[in-house]
Computed example of a mutant assay.
Amino acid sequence: MASDGDQIIENLRALSEPANANSDVQSLLIRSSALVSCLKSLNRAANTATKTKKDETTAARQEMDQSHLGLQNLLYEKRHLEREIEKCRQFASVYQDIPLYTLEEFQGLAPEEARTSEVLEDDHQLMLNRLSFELAERQRLDLKRRELLQAKEELLKQSKVNTNTLDGVKGHIDALVKTASEIQKKVDELIQPLPVPENSTAMTIG
Protein backbone atom coordinates (compact mmCIF):
# COMPACT_ATOMS: atom_id res chain seq x y z
CA MET A 1 0.00 0.00 0.00
CA ALA A 2 2.90 2.33 0.78
CA SER A 3 4.45 1.68 -2.66
CA ASP A 4 1.12 2.48 -4.34
CA GLY A 5 0.93 5.78 -2.49
CA ASP A 6 4.51 6.63 -3.44
CA GLN A 7 3.73 5.93 -7.10
CA ILE A 8 0.67 8.19 -7.00
CA ILE A 9 2.71 11.00 -5.43
CA GLU A 10 5.37 10.57 -8.13
CA ASN A 11 2.70 10.79 -10.81
CA LEU A 12 1.29 13.98 -9.23
CA ARG A 13 4.80 15.41 -9.05
CA ALA A 14 5.33 14.54 -12.69
CA LEU A 15 2.17 16.44 -13.67
CA SER A 16 3.58 19.58 -12.10
CA GLU A 17 6.89 19.42 -13.94
CA PRO A 18 7.67 22.10 -16.58
CA ALA A 19 7.47 19.49 -19.30
CA ASN A 20 3.71 19.41 -18.85
CA ALA A 21 3.33 23.18 -18.86
CA ASN A 22 1.94 23.18 -22.40
CA SER A 23 -0.34 20.16 -21.77
CA ASP A 24 -4.08 20.51 -21.81
CA VAL A 25 -5.16 21.96 -18.48
CA GLN A 26 -8.41 20.07 -18.46
CA SER A 27 -6.59 16.82 -19.06
CA LEU A 28 -4.09 17.59 -16.30
CA LEU A 29 -6.92 18.45 -13.92
CA ILE A 30 -8.72 15.21 -14.65
CA ARG A 31 -5.57 13.15 -14.21
CA SER A 32 -4.60 14.98 -11.01
CA SER A 33 -8.13 14.61 -9.59
CA ALA A 34 -8.04 10.89 -10.31
CA LEU A 35 -4.63 10.57 -8.66
CA VAL A 36 -5.82 12.56 -5.62
CA SER A 37 -8.91 10.37 -5.34
CA CYS A 38 -6.70 7.27 -5.44
CA LEU A 39 -4.46 8.85 -2.83
CA LYS A 40 -7.46 9.60 -0.57
CA SER A 41 -8.71 6.03 -1.04
CA LEU A 42 -5.32 4.70 -0.07
CA ASN A 43 -5.27 7.03 2.94
CA ARG A 44 -8.71 5.80 4.07
CA ALA A 45 -7.61 2.22 3.63
CA ALA A 46 -4.42 2.95 5.59
CA ASN A 47 -6.43 4.59 8.39
CA THR A 48 -8.84 1.64 8.48
CA ALA A 49 -5.95 -0.82 8.56
CA THR A 50 -4.23 1.22 11.27
CA LYS A 51 -7.41 1.31 13.35
CA THR A 52 -7.91 -2.43 12.86
CA LYS A 53 -4.35 -3.16 13.90
CA LYS A 54 -4.69 -0.80 16.84
CA ASP A 55 -7.89 -2.56 17.94
CA GLU A 56 -6.21 -5.93 17.51
CA THR A 57 -3.21 -4.67 19.47
CA THR A 58 -5.48 -3.35 22.24
CA ALA A 59 -7.37 -6.65 22.41
CA ALA A 60 -4.10 -8.59 22.44
CA ARG A 61 -2.73 -6.30 25.17
CA GLN A 62 -5.91 -6.75 27.23
CA GLU A 63 -5.72 -10.52 26.78
CA MET A 64 -2.05 -10.44 27.75
CA ASP A 65 -2.84 -8.28 30.81
CA GLN A 66 -5.63 -10.68 31.76
CA SER A 67 -3.30 -13.64 31.35
CA HIS A 68 -0.63 -11.84 33.39
CA LEU A 69 -3.18 -11.10 36.12
CA GLY A 70 -4.31 -14.73 36.08
CA LEU A 71 -0.67 -15.81 36.34
CA GLN A 72 -0.11 -13.47 39.28
CA ASN A 73 -3.22 -14.88 40.99
CA LEU A 74 -1.98 -18.41 40.41
CA LEU A 75 1.45 -17.54 41.79
CA TYR A 76 -0.17 -15.93 44.83
CA GLU A 77 -2.36 -18.99 45.34
CA LYS A 78 0.69 -21.21 44.91
CA ARG A 79 2.64 -19.29 47.57
CA HIS A 80 -0.39 -19.38 49.87
CA LEU A 81 -0.74 -23.14 49.45
CA GLU A 82 2.99 -23.65 50.00
CA ARG A 83 2.77 -21.69 53.26
CA GLU A 84 -0.27 -23.70 54.36
CA ILE A 85 1.51 -26.96 53.50
CA GLU A 86 4.54 -25.86 55.50
CA LYS A 87 2.30 -24.96 58.45
CA CYS A 88 0.71 -28.40 58.26
CA ARG A 89 4.13 -30.04 58.17
CA GLN A 90 5.27 -28.10 61.22
CA PHE A 91 1.99 -28.56 63.11
CA ALA A 92 2.48 -30.74 66.17
CA SER A 93 -0.65 -32.84 66.20
CA VAL A 94 -1.88 -34.44 69.40
CA TYR A 95 -1.60 -37.88 67.83
CA GLN A 96 2.18 -37.58 68.10
CA ASP A 97 1.84 -37.69 71.89
CA ILE A 98 -0.68 -40.53 71.98
CA PRO A 99 0.83 -43.85 73.07
CA LEU A 100 -0.21 -46.17 70.26
CA TYR A 101 -0.06 -49.90 69.91
CA THR A 102 3.27 -50.81 68.36
CA LEU A 103 3.29 -51.71 64.69
CA GLU A 104 3.77 -55.37 65.60
CA GLU A 105 0.81 -55.24 68.02
CA PHE A 106 -1.30 -53.47 65.39
CA GLN A 107 -0.46 -56.12 62.80
CA GLY A 108 -1.37 -58.82 65.27
CA LEU A 109 -4.57 -57.31 66.71
CA ALA A 110 -6.14 -55.05 64.07
CA PRO A 111 -8.80 -56.33 61.63
CA GLU A 112 -7.35 -57.81 58.47
CA GLU A 113 -8.80 -55.12 56.22
CA ALA A 114 -6.99 -52.45 58.26
CA ARG A 115 -3.53 -54.00 57.78
CA THR A 116 -3.40 -55.12 54.17
CA SER A 117 -0.13 -54.98 52.23
CA GLU A 118 -1.35 -51.84 50.41
CA VAL A 119 -2.01 -50.12 53.75
CA LEU A 120 1.36 -51.15 55.19
CA GLU A 121 3.10 -49.61 52.17
CA ASP A 122 1.23 -46.29 52.56
CA ASP A 123 2.59 -44.49 55.64
CA HIS A 124 -0.28 -41.97 55.70
CA GLN A 125 -3.03 -44.57 55.44
CA LEU A 126 -1.21 -46.81 57.89
CA MET A 127 -1.14 -44.03 60.49
CA LEU A 128 -4.85 -43.29 59.92
CA ASN A 129 -5.70 -46.98 60.39
CA ARG A 130 -3.54 -47.21 63.52
CA LEU A 131 -5.29 -44.17 64.99
CA SER A 132 -8.71 -45.60 64.11
CA PHE A 133 -7.78 -48.92 65.68
CA GLU A 134 -6.44 -47.15 68.77
CA LEU A 135 -9.71 -45.21 69.10
CA ALA A 136 -11.82 -48.35 68.68
CA GLU A 137 -9.73 -50.22 71.26
CA ARG A 138 -9.93 -47.37 73.76
CA GLN A 139 -13.69 -47.14 73.29
CA ARG A 140 -13.98 -50.91 73.75
CA LEU A 141 -11.80 -50.85 76.88
CA ASP A 142 -13.66 -47.82 78.23
CA LEU A 143 -16.98 -49.62 77.71
CA LYS A 144 -15.56 -52.68 79.47
CA ARG A 145 -14.29 -50.51 82.32
CA ARG A 146 -17.70 -48.87 82.71
CA GLU A 147 -19.39 -52.27 82.67
CA LEU A 148 -17.00 -53.49 85.38
CA LEU A 149 -17.60 -50.35 87.44
CA GLN A 150 -21.35 -50.83 87.09
CA ALA A 151 -21.02 -54.48 88.12
CA LYS A 152 -18.87 -53.40 91.08
CA GLU A 153 -21.49 -50.85 92.12
CA GLU A 154 -24.19 -53.51 91.88
CA LEU A 155 -22.11 -55.88 94.01
CA LEU A 156 -21.47 -53.14 96.55
CA LYS A 157 -25.19 -52.39 96.69
CA GLN A 158 -26.01 -56.08 97.10
CA SER A 159 -23.29 -56.44 99.71
CA LYS A 160 -24.73 -53.50 101.61
CA VAL A 161 -28.20 -55.04 101.43
CA ASN A 162 -26.82 -58.38 102.62
CA THR A 163 -24.92 -56.68 105.42
CA ASN A 164 -28.06 -54.84 106.55
CA THR A 165 -30.02 -58.09 106.39
CA LEU A 166 -27.32 -59.92 108.34
CA ASP A 167 -27.26 -57.17 110.94
CA GLY A 168 -31.05 -57.42 111.24
CA VAL A 169 -30.93 -61.20 111.60
CA LYS A 170 -28.14 -60.91 114.17
CA GLY A 171 -30.20 -58.39 116.11
CA HIS A 172 -33.16 -60.76 116.10
CA ILE A 173 -30.95 -63.65 117.19
CA ASP A 174 -29.45 -61.57 119.99
CA ALA A 175 -32.95 -60.57 121.09
CA LEU A 176 -34.10 -64.19 120.99
CA VAL A 177 -31.00 -65.33 122.93
CA LYS A 178 -31.60 -62.64 125.52
CA THR A 179 -35.27 -63.56 125.76
CA ALA A 180 -34.45 -67.25 126.03
CA SER A 181 -31.86 -66.51 128.69
CA GLU A 182 -34.35 -64.53 130.73
CA ILE A 183 -36.99 -67.27 130.35
CA GLN A 184 -34.46 -69.90 131.40
CA LYS A 185 -33.57 -67.85 134.42
CA LYS A 186 -37.19 -67.54 135.47
CA VAL A 187 -37.76 -71.24 134.88
CA ASP A 188 -34.74 -72.03 137.04
CA GLU A 189 -36.10 -69.81 139.78
CA LEU A 190 -39.51 -71.49 139.68
CA ILE A 191 -38.23 -75.01 139.70
CA GLN A 192 -37.07 -76.11 143.14
CA PRO A 193 -34.92 -79.21 143.58
CA LEU A 194 -37.17 -82.17 144.51
CA PRO A 195 -36.26 -83.99 147.79
CA VAL A 196 -34.81 -87.40 147.25
CA PRO A 197 -36.44 -90.18 149.43
CA GLU A 198 -34.14 -92.14 151.75
CA ASN A 199 -35.14 -95.45 150.30
CA SER A 200 -35.03 -94.19 146.74
CA THR A 201 -31.74 -95.92 146.24
CA ALA A 202 -32.98 -99.25 147.56
CA MET A 203 -36.19 -98.96 145.60
CA THR A 204 -34.31 -98.15 142.50
CA ILE A 205 -32.00 -101.14 143.02
CA GLY A 206 -34.91 -103.48 143.80
Rank of each mutant, 00 (worst) to 15 (best):
H80L: 10
N20G: 03
A21W: 00
V36N: 11
L176D: 12
E121L: 06
P197K: 12
E10F: 07
R145D: 05
L155G: 08
T52R: 13
G171Y: 06
L100H: 06
T52N: 11
L100P: 00
T163G: 07
L141W: 05
K178Q: 11
G5S: 12
E137P: 00
D174E: 13
V187L: 14
D55N: 11
T201S: 10
Q125M: 11
A19D: 12
L69A: 12
K185Y: 10
N162M: 08
L190F: 12
A180G: 08
E113G: 02
S200E: 12
A180M: 05
L28Q: 04
L109V: 00
V25Y: 04
P18T: 04
E17A: 04
T163A: 13
A175Q: 15
E105D: 11
I205G: 02
Q150Y: 09
A2L: 07
Q139K: 14
L190D: 07
R89K: 14
D97Q: 07
S117A: 08
D122A: 07
Y76S: 05
S3P: 01
K87A: 01
I98S: 10
R79S: 08
I205R: 13
T201E: 08
E154T: 06
E10W: 02
T116P: 01
S159D: 15
T204N: 07
E118N: 01
T102S: 08
V94Q: 15
A60S: 13
R145A: 04
M1R: 15
H80Q: 14
G171M: 09
T48N: 10
L156D: 15
S41H: 12
V94T: 10
M127N: 09
L35K: 03
L69I: 10
P197T: 05
C38M: 11
H172P: 02
Q150W: 12
K51Q: 04
I191Q: 13
A19L: 08
I205E: 09
S93R: 10
T58G: 12
L128A: 01
S37D: 02
Q62K: 15
C88N: 09
E147I: 14
K170P: 01
K178Y: 10
L35D: 07
D6Q: 11
A34Q: 11
Q96E: 13
T116W: 06
T102W: 04
E17L: 03
